[in-house]
């Protein structure tokens, strides 16, 4: 059994020093978990340490690929708000393109 860090990781290092098994290591493009070392913190802590400090919802998944921190659970940002964010980013990008062209 092992947890996995996926591409939404922002490389903040927060999880790395907390791992009781030293299973987390820096890699490109993002941190990874050595599946041979990860115990999901069983026997050491009630909650997996990486999952407990990771600020990015969905960046750490279990063996079935299920996110341990669900959308909205850490930031309070709902799916609806997220859609608004994506629209805002897209609008800013288009505006920058238009400014460049103009």
């Amino acid at each position: 059994m092992s947890l996995e860090i996926i591409e939404s990781c922002v490389n903040c290092y927060a999880c790395e020093p907390l791992c009781p098994n030293e299973a987390i290591y820096q890699a490109a493009p993002h941190f990874l978990i050595d599946p041979d070392k990860c115990t999901e913190c069983l026997g050491d802590f009630d909650d997996a340490q990486c999952t407990s400090i990771c600020p990015i919802e969905g960046a750490i998944v279990d063996e079935l690929g299920v996110a341990l921190n669900l959308p909205g659970s850490l930031t309070g940002i709902s799916a609806e708000m997220l859609a608004k964010y994506q629209a805002a980013v897209e609008a800013a990008y288009q505006a920058a393109l238009a400014a460049k062209a103009g």
């Binding site: 922002v10 490389n11 903040c12 290092y13 927060a14 400090i53 600020p55 850490l74 930031t75 309070g76």
Partner: peptide, 8 residues
């Protein structure tokens, strides 16, 4: 880069 809290 690491943080131990989240601010809104």
């Amino acid at each position: 880069p690491a943080c131990n809290i989240q601010c809104h």
